[in-house]
Design a protein around this nucleic acid. Structure first.
Lengths: 328, 328
DNA sequence: CTGAAAGCGCTAACAT
DNA sequence: ATGTTAGCGCTTTCAG
């Protein structure tokens, strides 16, 4: 089963020009639509293009324009279920402006992150979108990248010196506090993940502000297993907690599951909420009340920022609460 | 917060040549390591490179070499939890051969799939990896792509005329049949997803062969919800079924959850197995016995095939069973 | 072993 | 409105 590949003799502007009986410049003008071109000549060019099956060479154009129409996206960990949806949105937004996405995965490692980001630079991408994997250890990289290419931090933000698009944490947290109040909950707790992840850090701060609670906080990592462990710890240390805000759906899923194993009813005895609106939020029983970030808009803004005129800034977009059954 | 970007004057081979007092040809020779070069001259070149901070321009090289060192990957649906892990593996394998990945998402739509695949071709990728989204409607595209660029089907295979790397379905299915026999199960059923997905189709056929059962088969889509619906249908139509093979973890998760809602014990009353070894397999309680495809090896093989000498072929690699608690 | 020069395919001055 | 030409930055014949 050999790969058959008829190496089609490449058709160039020169071939088209010859066939249409014009110069290569005219062909270029007709095709790019720049400057005025005689209608009759334009027709001849188009005919020649069709006849020859000419396709402009993206590589030559890129070298000439010094522009690759390609954006890089440094994702911290593609196996984190939040990111595939973001990747999808970014890819779509990029396509809308005729750009493609070079995807690289940092595997949650700042060293690896630097390595792959530098690959993107050497590839001459027109800009880089990055969700920095580490709150402090990624800062230098983000700042340095900003010196040689247009950079926008998306979702996770670690440097105020570089443009960013992120979702608001305060609004949804206030909303969750409202739900807790409305349903007469008395004691809230927060289960977060690594504080080295900017979003987790921000959510914890928002929790402290909106719930006025800084003690009942547990921090682990970004996994279902940690959620399970946290649930046990929670019950042991603060048996009367009746509202648990989790920094992600993975954690919330684990918390709920373990609470149920221990005979607690969710949400009757204890409410649990998640974050990110991933598959787990609806797979869980009860379904998880979670926070949906406006991924599509974030992607659109980020792509606009990164491809836009050097003038730039940062945007914080509002999230929405998706009420499941777990917050009763 | 303007994006600061000191437009570093580009350093070219010419600059290096000048500084080292040699010709651009020599610089190129020293840097590419081709041909013999005088040790002393080479040193001067390297010094100049360091002093000037020269970085070769990937674009110019690509135009000159007619080679982009970039591979395209057409993923059918990035939100399908199986694919992120595959993307990660492919990206790593590509990096190992100094290539990058342009990622495009077909969103399960053959028309979209064609559109994005053609973008990849126009981008002059050196090769395309594709998990075709449709068993029949993607065939023409795969065949046509093979005519203009090196193509390898990965995971999903729809055309025998184009190289492919896929996981074996028969072995793991036989293994599952073995588990069923060992645990004294009497009646097996299969819950699949769209038959238009090549893997789903292949798994169904393998089930029929290994379990000798063609009646107790339900087909829906690739979701937890379908799993839930299938469980209800299963119990209604064949109340004595005691072993359920599912074409994916999503389906298995839904089946287990719904069976439990209906008061059935898993695996005591009825065993359930999944496929793909995704997050859901370990998030589920009981954990799901599932099939792990050798993703890393598949990616490695596929990248080798697609970048390799035109001579090529297809590979089928063995999967392994990951026994969870759900198969009793 | 090294240099001069051509050329990958395209587009933007600069003529005409 | 159209043609001529230079050049993006690199590598690689072809000479010497």
């Amino acid at each position: 089963m050999a790969v058959r590949r008829t190496t089609i003799a490449k058709v160039t502007v020169t071939d088209v020009a010859e066939r249409a009986g014009v110069s290569t410049a005219t062909v270029s003008r007709v095709l790019t639509g720049r400057r005025g071109t005689g209608a009759e000549v334009a027709q001849r060019v188009h005919d020649a293009v069709d006849a020859l099956g000419y396709v402009p060479d993206y590589l030559a154009k890129a070298l000439r324009d010094q522009r690759t129409a390609t954006l890089g996206f440094v994702v911290p960990d593609i196996t984190n279920p939040f990111f595939p949806a973001l990747i999808q949105a970014i890819e779509a937004s990029a396509r809308a402006v005729s750009s493609s996405i070079l995807l690289v995965d940092a595997r949650n490692d700042p060293d690896e992150e630097r390595r792959v980001a530098e690959i993107l630079v050497s590839r001459r991408v027109d800009g880089i979108l990055i969700s920095p994997c580490h709150l402090t250890r990624s800062v230098a990289l983000v700042d340095q990248l900003g010196a040689s290419v247009s950079v926008v931090q998306i979702d996770r933000v670690v440097s105020s010196r570089v443009a960013s698009v992120s979702a608001d944490h305060t609004g949804p947290m206030a909303h969750l506090a409202g739900i807790a109040a409305r349903t007469g909950r008395q004691r809230a707790a927060f289960v977060g993940s690594e504080l080295t992840v900017s979003t987790s850090h921000a959510r914890q701060e928002a929790f402290a502000r909106q719930f006025g609670e800084t003690d009942r906080v547990l921090v682990g990592d970004f996994s279902v297993d940690w959620g399970r462990a946290a649930a046990r710890e929670l019950v042991r240390r603060w048996p009367d907690v009746d509202f648990v805000v989790c920094a992600s759906d993975l954690i919330a899923f684990g918390v709920i599951q373990e609470l149920q194993m221990m005979g607690r009813r969710v949400p009757e005895d204890i409410a649990v909420t998640g974050w990110d609106d991933t598959l787990l939020a609806i797979a869980s029983r009860p379904t998880i009340t979670t926070v949906r970030q406006p991924i599509v808009e974030m992607a659109r803004l980020a792509v606009e920022l990164v491809t836009g005129i050097p003038a730039s800034g940062s945007a914080v977009v509002p999230s929405t609460i998706v009420e499941g059954q777990s917050s009763g």
